[in-house]
Design a protein around this nucleic acid. Sequence first.
RNA 1: CGGGGUGUGGCGCAGUCCGGUAGCGCACCUGCUUUGGGAGCAGGGAGUCGGAGGUUCAAAUCCUCUCACCCCGACCA
Length: 487
Amino acid sequence: MSDYGITSREKDFSQWYLDIVQRAELGDHSPVRGCMVIRPNGYAIWEKMQAALDGMIKATGHRNAYFPLFIPESFLKKEAEHVEGFAPECAVVTHGGGRLLEEPLMIRPTSETIIYHMYAKWIQSYRDLPVLINQWANVVRWEMRTRLFLRTTEFLWQEGHTAHATPEEGEEETRRMLDVYRRFAEEYMALPVLMGKKTAAEKFAGALRTYSIEAMMQDGKALQAGTSHNLGQNFSRPFEVRFQDESQQWQYCWQTSWGVSTRLIGALIMAHSDDQGLVLPPRLAPIEVVVVPIWSSDEQQQAVRAYLEEVRGQLDGRVSYHIDDRDQFKPGWKFAEWELKGIPLRLEVGPRDVAKRGAVLVRRDTREKQMLSLEDVGTAVREALDHMQRDLFDRALAFRREHTYMADVYDDFQTTISEKPGFTWAHWCGGADCETRVAQETKATIRTVPFEPEDGLETQDAPPPEQGRCIVCGQPSLRRVLWGKAY
RNA sequence: CGGGGUGUGGCGCAGUCCGGUAGCGCACCUGCUUUGGGAGCAGGGAGUCGGAGGUUCAAAUCCUCUCACCCCGACCA
C-alpha cells in the first residue's frame, strides 16, 4: 500500500519531490534545458494562488498593468549593482525579422528598469504619487541548475512596483507588502513563515534593503517564499523618476518592488505532502472534495446514482467537488489516485450508505474516516476543510519549532548545522566576512535578521534581543539571526 | 563548468562485462468475470535500443564523437 511509485522522503527527498511533481501531473520538463511545462493540475493551483493574492494586492490599493518582455540592453546598465547582479543570467535577443538588431534586447529577468523608464514619463508632481502598480508576468533567468517549480529558467510571478514621495512611505509600503505575503502564506498556503531583513549579501541587486518571508521545508531546508525590496532612490536617480513637491522643488521618488513566483507551488509540495503523494491546503485546492461512488450490480448502480443526486444537494453551492463515476476503475484505485493528486477530502458513497442514508468522509492528510448522515454532509465537509487547513498550518509550525535550535559557540553551531536539518539561531556581529566564512565552512547562510520591536512588524518565534557574541569572531552582538541551509 | 549516474514500446526496468532472432512488469486494445484501499483470466497491438560515425559476415552489446536528463558542488526567487 505504500509503494505507488513515489520515492519515500526518508530515502531521497529530492527524488520524492520530483516524483510528486511527475505523478501528480503538476509539471514536466520541456525540450529546452531548465524550462518547465506547467500542467493543468499545477496551473490550477497557480490560478488559485493568483486569485487570492491578486485580491489582497488590489485590497491594498494596487492596480494591475502589463509591461513588455523585451528590455533595451542599455536600461539594465543604468544601475550599477543591478546590472552586475542580473547581466550574467540574462537571455539576450540579437536578431529580429532576420536582421541583426541595432541594440540587443534583454528578456526581462525582472522589470524594474523598463517600468521605471515609463514612470519617469508619467510622474511629474507630488499629486501623481503614490504610483501603485502590479503585474503578472513571466521572467527569464539563465540559472545554472534548475529544479521544477523551485528554480526554472522561465517562471511566472507577480511583481509590484511603487513610487512614493517620501522615504517613510516607501519603507511603509515595503513592509506592508511583506506582511501581505506573510498573511497569504499563513492563511492560504497553511505555511508558517519567518519575516525579516536580508543581509547585504542576500539582498536584491540594486535595493537599499530586502525583506523576505522564509519557510522551512520537510527536509529542514529554508525556502525564500517572497521578497519585498525598499529600493530607496537607487533606481529613481538613474531613470530620473522625479516629481515636483509642494515647494516646487524637484525630488527623486522613493521606490519599492516585491514579488512571489511559481516557486510557491514547490513550497506547497515540500511543506505538506507525504509519501502517498501531494497534500494540498483546502484553500488552494482546485477541487475540494472528490466523490467516489461504489457499486457492483446494476441495481446498486441505479440506487447509488439516484442517491448521488441527494448528496449533490448537500454539496452544491458549499464546496467545489468532482464526482468520479468512471466505470473502468475500481474504488480502491480511485482512492489512491485522488490521494496522489492531493484532493483534500474524499466522500465515499456506496450501497451501504444508500441503505443508511449516509456517506463516508476521508481526509487526505490524516486518512481519518468519518461516518456521516446525509443531512450532515454539507456542514461536515465544510468543517473538515476548515480543520484540515488549520491542522496543516499547525503541523508545519510544530515541525519548524522542533527543528529549530540555538547555538552559542561556533563548534556547537557547526555540529548542529551538519547533523540536525533545520534552522539555528545564533549571534552574528553584522560583518560580511563572518557570514561568508560560515557559508563556506557549513553551507549555512543567514536566512533572515529578525525585526526589532520598533519596526512595526514582528518576527514570530524569534528570540528576543539579548547581549551575545558573534559565533565566528566573538564581537558583541545584540541579537541572534536565523541560519540554515537554503534552496 | 567540475565530479557521479542514467538513456532500450506510453511509464518503470532487464539484457551490455563475454557481439548472434529485442524481453519483463505496468499502462493500452478486445472479450468474459469483477467493484467499500491500486481486480482476475484469455487473446492482441505497440520499440530506427538517445543521436552520428566506425570495427565486424553480424552491434542494444565493442571503439570514437555527440546530445539529453538526473544527483552532488560553484550562481539564484
